[in-house]
Design a protein around this nucleic acid. Structure first.
Lengths: 266, 266
DNA sequence: AGTTATTATTGATCTAGAATAAGGGCTTGC
DNA sequence: GCAAGCCCTTATTCTAGATCAATAATAACT
């Protein structure tokens, strides 16, 4: 490896590595520490409390259960578990996946701080996938029946939760298009740009971050094999669009990446 | 063609063709005729009014706009139009699609009677795709701001609309898995079985129906080319699992079709 | 009814990405 | 500190499905 390692568990964080180690960075924004209210959470402008006033946030706060942090690999819930709650990521990251008949999993989504997990279970009352922590993470659990009750009292919350679900639907349909007509390189570029803007949303660098997931996870998510993902990474690096070192990634030419997926770069 | 044509526009419908011509059949269930209330609509047990009592249905009825029927090819809305309403299919069928940069469209969804269209626009306030009628169809338009207001008054309606959106999310994630890991034959089998159960839902034959969409539409939806879809149809027919004549299709061996996608056939 | 445009089928070739194989670097646990 | 697993990369071969091409069948238009 020709750049200094930033993987050391207890390494002292300098300016550079701080901007890269997303887990630590999200800790700053929204600690694993459970003694935090929605009102004081740094994510409250992106998460469920958005558009709520102080009184309303307090009411939401009452129904949120702040569970103890999850270790890497811990499950939030498993496929077919009874649906009880949706979850807001406070720090860390998660992946959802289903097990195919052949035993191997297929990743259906990744979740970063401020994002909502578990809405696939609302209709059938059972989760349709399993969801697992990708690193040391913390979560806010929102019992759905109480969220419904509160939404009924707070039109703002109802409106916003409709919007969150609508957003999930729009996002899923974009992925549908991605998978049904884009090449491996286009899918990968789109994936990286998607992560970029999601990190930007939580005030992290949009051009330098650590991938919380394996190449295999990315492949399963994008309908590609590990080998192809690895090859595309190498090839994008050779073209000078990205810089990769294991999980560390830098997007060195955003507009060229956008050009790959056919977005006008103005 | 070696089976009697059932495509004749004004042909007198006999027992057989009645069960096959879905457009006409759905007319019986829920006519193009606009003078019908939710209370009397044959779809009210599957559509928005589900779980509402008589008074509540009447309230919903007040906000529903029953537009004049759409001809084949008519647009319900276009990509980037301002989001104002969601729509319930009363009869006929629709497809949603986005135009890729290369000009060719990619189909993101098909909608049959009793299904809800347009939820992708809720978050961004603009429709993220265009939606077009595939045949002579009729629609109920539900202005979203009024639906929100009414949902606030009727907990049942709020609950049910959360469920409808949750169902859309779960369905989209299933398609994600389908596209990222299934073969052309598996995708096609899954698509046919999906249509089958959706027709069954509106009391039409689950084994004999007319495809409202072209092979090309199916291909765009499943991430395949027209040629591949056509070849898979031919091959499934040779294996005796289906019987195809142009748009007319019969699923002659449901359990074998299920076996293709790895579902235990009990 | 006859013409044109769209839709569907079938065959022949080509290619993007899968599968297979194999080695090396990290991480984890004893 | 060493061993056992992962995880990632790279090279080689192979194949499912795309692309190209041509024709036939249907539907739509005048």
């Amino acid at each position: 490896m020709n750049t200094p390692s930033i993987q050391g568990k207890e390494s002292v964080l300098d300016e550079l590595s701080l901007s890269v180690r997303n887990e630590s960075a999200t800790q700053k924004i929204c600690p694993h520490n459970s003694n935090i209210s929605c009102a004081s959470c740094r994510l409250n402008e992106l998460c469920l409390p958005i558009a709520l006033n102080k009184t309303e946030i307090h009411q939401l706060d009452e129904i949120v259960e702040r569970n103890r942090p999850l270790k890497k690999g811990d499950h939030l819930y498993r496929q077919n578990d009874e649906f009880r709650s949706v979850f807001a990521v406070r720090s860390g990251s998660f992946k959802s996946y289903v097990l195919s008949d052949t035993g191997q999993g297929r990743v259906t989504g990744f979740y970063l701080p401020g994002e909502i997990i578990g809405m696939d279970g609302i209709a059938s009352k059972h989760y349709s996938n399993s969801t697992q922590s990708l690193e040391h993470s913390s979560i806010c659990e929102i019992p759905f029946s109480q969220l419904e009750k509160l939404s009924h009292q707070l039109p703002n919350l109802q409106h916003h939760f409709f919007a969150i679900m609508g957003n999930e639907i729009a996002k899923d349909q974009q992925i549908h298009t991605l998978l049904s007509s884009y090449s491996a390189e286009e899918r990968t570029a789109s994936f990286l740009l998607g992560l970029s803007s999601r990190y930007a949303r939580v005030s992290l660098s949009p051009t330098r971050f650590l991938l919380p997931m394996t190449r295999s996870d990315i492949g399963e998510y994008l309908g590609l094999t590990v080998e192809t993902v690895s090859r595309i990474f190498t090839s994008l690096q050779k073209k000078g669009l990205i810089e990769v070192n294991n999980r560390e990634i830098e997007l060195t030419d955003l507009s060229a990446l956008r050009a790959i997926i056919g977005v006008d770069t103005c």
